[in-house]
């Protein structure tokens, strides 16, 4: 294990932020700490980095207990949501900072920084100041700065949180590729389930200061441990007292075993997908179907359809 956090407790004043949190991050993995804001994920990341002291619990990095170690000596790379760019230094000096602190020879620093500049596609910007870069460029610089010291683990706190949607998407794919190239154990915090599913190979869902579930994106999405995880990872609707994903609902014109009668209230076309809003007795539900199916069934407000969870659908009883 590259990182092990054991039984971490942390409170700010009277507010408990982490309650008996244990997380294991395998070497070389790309792990997402996913959860709603205020769920404790950033605090956990900061505890791992040593920027925050846990009230109790142990942090191990590469097998060594670092709980009482200062952040300087943990050999972690940390990337902040708002970049924390050193405003008074050029891009080159920002990236070189950690190496200069470690008193590496000048020519070695020069070589390493240029490698990294190339890696993050900032070669032409070496002499610029952070203020002259775009948000995405600053974030890539911050990443290169963290990677420069060859950290044991790379920790990213909402790395794309401050960027606009388009840049965000590009950087996600880029981070995935970068991780495939560099292979450093990486943990990133996000509140965006799509981002976590797309980028990470392991997802840890944190809410209310507790770990709700951890596993591969596939596991967490398809076998949610509880209602919270199911709701947080994707859209859900309620059918006959069970939670089910709207794309797992089967719509038929005639009754089928286990199906229920529903009245179509609204049909919304979203590109090739169609969102069907229905009334089942005294409950509302919705389903996501393809355009072809919607046309075959001639779905229109006021029509009656029959609905049931599809054969492979994962459902969860509403508690």
């Amino acid at each position: 294990m590259a990182i092990e956090a054991r039984h971490i407790n942390k409170a700010f004043g009277a507010t408990s932020v982490l309650q008996d949190v244990s997380v294991e991050v395998p070497s070389g993995s790309l792990t997402a700490l996913l959860g709603p804001s205020g769920g404790g994920k950033s605090t956990l990341l900061r505890v791992i980095a040593g920027l925050e002291q846990p009230d109790s619990g142990t942090v191990l990095i590469a097998g060594a207990d670092v709980t009482r170690l200062a952040p300087q000596r943990r050999n972690v790379g940390f990337v902040f949501q708002h970049y924390a760019a050193f405003k008074h230094m050029t891009v080159f000096d920002n990236i070189a900072f950690g190496l200069q602190i470690r008193k590496r020879p000048k020519n070695e620093i020069h070589k390493r920084v240029h490698e990294l500049l190339e890696l993050v596609h900032l070669d032409q910007f070496a002499k610029r100041y952070p203020a002259q870069l775009s948000g995405g460029q600053r974030q890539r610089m911050a990443l290169a700065r963290a990677l420069a010291v060859e950290p044991e683990v790379l920790l990213l706190d909402e790395p794309f949180g401050a960027l606009d949607a388009q840049v965000r998407k590009e950087l996600r794919a880029w981070l995935r590729r970068l991780h495939d190239d560099v292979h450093v154990t990486t943990v990133f915090v996000t509140h965006d389930q799509e981002e976590a599913i797309e980028v990470a190979d392991t997802i840890v869902v944190l809410a209310g200061g507790r770990v709700e579930q951890s596993g591969s994106p596939h596991e967490v999405y398809d076998n949610p441990a509880n209602e919270f995880v199911m709701r947080f990872l994707g859209p859900v609707t309620e059918l006959d007292g069970r939670l089910v994903r709207p794309h797992d609902i089967e719509l038929t014109a005639e009754p089928e075993p286990g199906s229920a009668e529903a009245t179509v209230e609204r049909v919304v076309r979203l590109g090739f997908e169609v969102r069907v809003e229905m009334r089942l007795g005294d409950q509302d539900a919705w389903a996501q179907v393809t355009r072809g199916l919607a046309e075959r069934l001639r779905l229109a407000p006021g029509e009656t359809v029959h609905v049931r969870p599809g054969p492979d659908a994962r459902t969860l009883a509403v508690v």
Binding site: A49, Q72, V76, F80, A85
Partner: peptide, 10 residues
């Protein structure tokens, strides 16, 4: 944050 970043860099 800049100071924390410097700390994590050693």
């Amino acid at each position: 944050e800049q100071e924390q970043a410097a700390q994590t860099l050693g």
